[in-house]
Amino acid sequence: MLSLPELPVLLLDNNCDFGLIAHETPIRSTQDAEQYFDLARAVPTHVVRLNRILAFIV
């Protein structure tokens, strides 16, 4: 499993277009997210690691 500091390195090494948004506390639930985002406009996204592939499920 990649650590958070390793993620941008992997993405840059693979010429990925990405952006990371830092938050003061982890977002692990909808309740956590509501302090940062308008939940009416938000889409749940899950990141899954399959061997050396990261998949984003929206």
Rank of each mutant, 00 (worst) to 15 (best):
D13P: 02
R41A: 14
E34R: 03
S3Y: 09
L4H: 14
L11I: 04
D32V: 03
A22C: 11
V43N: 02
D17V: 13
T25F: 09
L11S: 00
S29H: 02
L7C: 14
G19K: 14
E24P: 12
V43Q: 10
R41P: 03
N51A: 14
H23K: 11
L2K: 08
I27P: 01
G19N: 14
E34K: 09
L11M: 09
R41Y: 09
N51F: 09
E6H: 14
F37I: 03
D38F: 06
E6N: 15
A40R: 10
A42S: 14
L20C: 12
L11T: 01
T30K: 06
L20R: 02
P8Y: 02
L50A: 09
F56I: 00
L12Y: 06
P8E: 04
D13M: 02
N14Q: 09
A55Q: 13
P5W: 11
F18D: 00
R49D: 03
H46G: 08
V47E: 03
I57E: 07
P26S: 15
T45D: 04
P44D: 10
R28L: 13
R52A: 13
L10R: 05
V9D: 06
L39M: 14
T25W: 07
N15H: 08
Q31G: 10
A40Q: 12
R52M: 09
A33L: 03
R52E: 13
H46Y: 07
L50E: 12
H23Q: 08
F18W: 00
G19Y: 12
I53L: 13
A55M: 13
N15Q: 10
L20Q: 02
A22K: 07
R28Q: 09
S29D: 05
D38N: 14
N14E: 07
V47S: 04
E24H: 12
L50V: 08
D32Y: 01
G19Q: 15
L10K: 04
S3A: 13
P44M: 10
E34P: 01
F37A: 08
H23D: 01
E24Q: 14
L7H: 04
C16I: 08
G19I: 02
E24S: 13
G19M: 11
T30Y: 06
L2W: 12
R49W: 04
R28N: 11
P8A: 05
P26K: 05
N51K: 11
L2H: 07
S29L: 01
L12W: 04
N15S: 13
F37Y: 11
A33N: 02
P8D: 03
T25P: 05
D38E: 09
I27Q: 04
R28P: 05
P44Q: 12
L20D: 01
Q31D: 12
P8L: 01
Q31N: 09
I27A: 01
G19F: 04
Y36W: 05
I53E: 13
L7G: 04
A42E: 05
L54A: 04
V9S: 06
L54D: 00
V9G: 05
S3H: 04
T30L: 10
L12G: 08
L54Q: 07
T25I: 06
A42R: 01
P26C: 08
F18E: 01
C16P: 04
R41G: 08
I27L: 07
N51W: 11
M1Y: 10
F18K: 00
L39Q: 09
F56V: 00
H23N: 11
I27V: 07
N15P: 06
Y36I: 07
I27S: 03
E6D: 13
I57V: 06
Q31H: 06
N14H: 15
L50T: 08
I57H: 05
D38V: 08
A40S: 09
